[in-house]
Design a protein around this nucleic acid. Sequence first.
DNA 1: AATGTGCGCAACCGCTAAATG
DNA 2: ACATTTAGCGGTTGCGCACAT
Length: 169
Amino acid sequence: MGRSPCCEKAHTNKGAWTREEDERLVAHVRAHGEGCWRSLPSAAGLLRCGKSCRLRWINYLRPDLKRGNFSRDEDELIVKLHSLLGNKWSLIAARLPGRTDNEIKNYWNTHIRRKLLGRGIDPVTHRPLTDAATGAAAAGRHLLPLQHPQSERSGDGVQLRQQLPGPQG
DNA sequence: AATGTGCGCAACCGCTAAATG
DNA sequence: ACATTTAGCGGTTGCGCACAT
């Protein structure tokens, strides 16, 4: 049958990573590369799920991460890309070197989304909010999810790449 | 100074497409 | 062709900190 299980269900740590765990993960990836996440935990001596290791590496430990505040250019680029791609954070992150999809997603939800709402712009459609929608947004209710036709999962925004700006730097 | 509240970030959860036997 | 697992993605949650009361 298929592959062997992803990770041992028992004896896996959860929650915040310790410094020692980080060091083990970094050392292992440096030595062996970002290969098979499934076998990485045992090979690196970590009591973590491979999925957790991958997330930790991509979002926090990768050496090419910028970290720190988003520049105004990055801010504007995220808004522009989001208007074209919708919540395709990985695609947006691919256009922002040194930034991760998780980081951009967090930044969007905590900063940009609020900023757009403050300007009376719907963060989903990037269009001016109607009075009714404004009321709903102000009340913190769920707006109807609006699919960006170009950003359907199947299409993956491939066609869009022609109209998108190139990677920064 | 103590308590309450909101925000930001890291990590987890659940799902899907792709890969594998 | 099918069943099963992996890798990756997006949504959500929970903790810790800063600020307000």
